[in-house]
Design a protein around this nucleic acid. Structure first.
Lengths: 350, 350
DNA sequence: CTGAAAGCGCTTACAG
DNA sequence: CTGAAAGCGCTTACAG
């Protein structure tokens, strides 16, 4: 064995190809292809020679050529409205983790508009990679992408809890945030609060209001015979939570608030602190997600832990299966949400 | 014009190729190639016919075939230790934004080990895409990737403020966090604090301690003739900040603490609150980054705003230039950090 | 200004 | 078990 072919090379000479390996091993490039693809019908001694040549030359199969010849690449493109908010970032982390373990490349493509040409362009670019696609479809751009995706495209989606059972064969996954919202709302009612106000994250549906999280909240109130206040329009971040908090702090009837996510809750807590409204003494506050900051706020935040990283891993697993077998897979929920009780919720006083 | 070739198609028939366009337009596929590449020497009428056929068939150039033929693809792979912590997530956001505007695909590859085979594998996979590479090199895995990258690889790095002027032609960018650390430390000293304690983020260097941020902090203390306390080992997240905070809260001599990032500061504030140490009454606390939560904590957090999204955009711009012209580019700092004064820092009392 | 030929590095039938 | 041929969809010289 020579010591020449240092993997990674000096950038000077071009990378070894399948033919270089073939001539080094004294076989045809076709046989090399069989070896690198683990094809069974290769004599052991031949295989050994080829493998030695591969190691010697530091050969790596060109993913590009492989993709062109096969018409399919080992990669996945994630279509997501953003990469920074907790749930999205964590889902992306889970996808990358699973993809890396399977030696898939992962591409990201931020989809921040639901205009048809924009969505079509994003889909076409994703399709152009020859890999699979994972759509994070919690908002209109994502839902639009699902609607506009061509039929044959290998595609998996993370969606909100479907209002009704999805069509069989829809490759969808979700966490049951409707049930989670119901649970946290019941917790609040159980503490003696007459009702629970809701600060909404932006929603998929035309009707607005945080869709399934709002639906679960509403269901719990209704089941308990509690009045259902108008949801307060929120957003994704602390600034919107702060705005909502200033509004709610003015109303002395408000004793319990559920926020559509922990970032909103952070801003809301700040607004309550400024207004001199004690949490949880006067008002209980709960969030959603169990984002990294939730446990360390003062007061620490009662919230619902959602396993977005697990959701991301499930998305990839589903897509991987779909890419291998081509068979449609059953939609299914993943990783049950869990209520985390902390300091920000307490019994109603007075 | 027929209405058949609906872009995106029905997944049924395969995508139109350059030859399909050619025969539809009555030219050779070579001429189609000229048109899609904006080659000047094509008769206007020919160009028009080809463009009509392209629109009609919904033709899109195969990125894969293009990459194979050219030996280079229009994509960038980001090598980063993680995708979720604020600075990394924001840098990634900036990269994606700039890349999308230039019609580049962006891939991500998390590099969480500095073991040589792991780093080589990540580099090889990135190189295999035929695109450029951006390394986020704030820690050992990233620095190792820079060391092991083959010479010819089109590569740009986001690095810590270099201790000495980097070799000319190093395609590096950074924010001047050393100067930023100096500035916030001076602010604290100016409030009357005898010294400033430092909770470190993990560092690149063997010596540990947050490298350039620590260096700036130390420089400011030394310049002021203040004692230099041993830095407290922190980490990336609130949990580590909490641990450090419990330790520092025990020492009554501690009146000012600088945290290597805002997530650490969050945990530290919690620890101080639990210990009954008033901020900023008894102790001043400052952070780094101006992460989204900083402005909404109680007390709100004095910090240094670092423009990571701008850093990400600068990385892509540099790489894009490098990919086009092949000329080496000068290393340079981007977006000056800015001190943001909030409630968590105040004059020393007693 | 335009076309015929060869090639990028693989894989997929088809022979033997 | 192994090789010669054709092809994936583009681009790059080379002719004309």
């Amino acid at each position: 064995m020579s010591v020449s072919g240092h993997a990674g090379g000096t950038g000077g000479r071009r990378a070894a190809s399948i033919r270089d390996v073939a001539s080094a091993a004294g076989v045809s490039h076709q046989t090399v292809s069989r070896v690198i693809n683990g094809h069974p019908s290769v004599r052991a001694s031949t295989r050994a020679r080829v493998e030695a040549a591969i190691a010697d030359l530091g050969f790596r199969r060109s993913a590009t050529a492989h993709a062109l010849a096969r018409g399919r690449s080992e990669s996945v493109t994630v279509l997501t409205p953003n990469t920074v908010h907790h749930g999205y970032a964590a889902a992306l982390q889970g996808i990358e983790e699973a993809a890396r373990a399977a030696s898939y490349m992962v591409g990201i493509s931020v989809l921040d508009s639901d205009r048809e040409p924009v969505v079509r362009e994003a889909l076409a670019r994703a399709a152009g990679t020859g890999g699979g696609v994972i759509v994070i479809a919690y908002d209109r751009p994502g839902v639009r992408a699902l609607e506009l995706a061509p039929a044959g495209m290998p595609l998996v989606a993370a969606v909100e809890t479907p209002a009704e059972p999805p069509p069989a064969g829809s490759p969808w996954v979700w966490t049951d945030d409707r049930e989670a919202a119901r649970e946290v709302t019941r917790h609040l009612l159980g503490l003696g609060h007459r009702t629970v106000h809701y600060v909404a994250i932006p929603s998929t549906t035309r009707t607005g209001g945080g869709a399934q999280r709002a639906a679960g909240w509403r269901a719990a109130l209704t089941a308990a015979g509690a009045p259902v206040p108008e949801p307060v329009a929120g957003g994704w971040g602390p600034a919107e939570g702060y705005t909502a908090g200033r509004e709610l702090a003015r109303d002395p009837a408000v004793t319990a608030v559920l926020c559509g996510n922990d970032a909103l809750a952070l801003g809301l807590l700040r607004a309550f602190a400024e207004a001199g409204r004690d949490v949880p003494g006067e008002v209980s506050v709960a969030g959603f997600d169990d984002a990294p900051h939730a446990a360390f706020l003062t007061p620490s935040l009662t919230t619902v832990r959602l396993d977005f990283a697990g959701l991301g891993r499930a998305c990839f697993a589903l897509l991987h299966g779909l890419l291998q077998q081509g068979e449609p897979v059953a939609p299914h929920p993943v990783a049950a949400p869990r209520l985390i009780l902390r300091e920000s919720t307490g019994p109603r006083r007075g």
